[in-house]
Design a protein around this nucleic acid. Structure first.
Length: 198
DNA sequence: CACGGGATCGTCT
DNA sequence: GACGATCCCGTGT
């Protein structure tokens, strides 16, 4: 069988490095009796207190950001624009509010279910490219806030997929973050079609 | 294909 | 009361 990524992997403290390592791993959900999976093709690093784009900038601790301070290996899901549930992986030691936003996956298993959840008929990048899109396709929502990623509901597997080249560029939708908006902390697999923005 | 506006609501000020 | 770590659809080229 495939290797489920263990919590120790997520507890490394270099969130930027981890964001790259997540590329090529497989995000799997088993929700409402339906299994769906996709290869992670695009991620963004949010680096705790020193990152102006991070919800936990300056250790801002609220009901929403609370889970980012937990030990790495749990889900941080929040509602964006009142519509979209965005899925993040919390990383680092307890008290260090690092997180990785998963922005796109390439469908692997359960494609029919994904199409149905997305109200689509044709397979195209829009199915799972973009953080709101993939959450909907994989049925991730706020009820998974704080869920441990060693659970059998949402987890990540290492299937030894080789990633040749990684592009590092600026993150999306964080103009408010001033100079930190320029950090090259968005990563995607070069040449992969299942990416929200090339 | 590029652009622009509207949807929609939890969270924090 | 304002505003998103977004997406979709309509319009115009």
């Amino acid at each position: 069988m495939f290797n489920k990524v263990s919590n120790s992997f997520y507890r490394q403290n270099d969130v930027v490095e981890l964001s790259k390592q997540l590329l090529g791993k497989v995000l799997v959900t088993n929700i409402n009796g339906q299994k769906t999976a996709g290869v992670i093709t695009e991620t963004e690093a949010y680096r705790g207190p020193e990152d102006k784009a991070c919800h936990a900038h300056l250790n801002r601790f609220t009901k929403r950001t609370k889970v980012m301070f937990a030990k790495g290996g749990v889900a941080y899901v929040y509602l964006c624009y009142g519509i979209h549930h965005l899925f993040n992986v919390v990383t680092g030691d307890e008290g260090l509010p690092h997180a990785i936003l998963i922005r796109a996956v390439e469908p692997l298993e359960g494609v029919e279910v994904m199409l149905e959840r997305r109200n689509m008929t044709k397979i195209q990048p829009r199915l799972t490219s973009g953080p709101g899109c993939l959450s909907k396709a994989l049925a991730i929502d706020k009820s998974h806030y704080g869920l441990n990623l060693e659970s059998d509901v949402i987890w990540i597997e290492d299937r030894n997929i080789v990633v040749n080249e990684i592009i590092a560029t600026t993150r999306i939708g964080i103009d408010y973050a001033e100079e930190d908006a320029l950090l090259p902390w968005r990563f995607y697999i070069k040449g992969n079609r299942w990416v929200s923005k090339q």
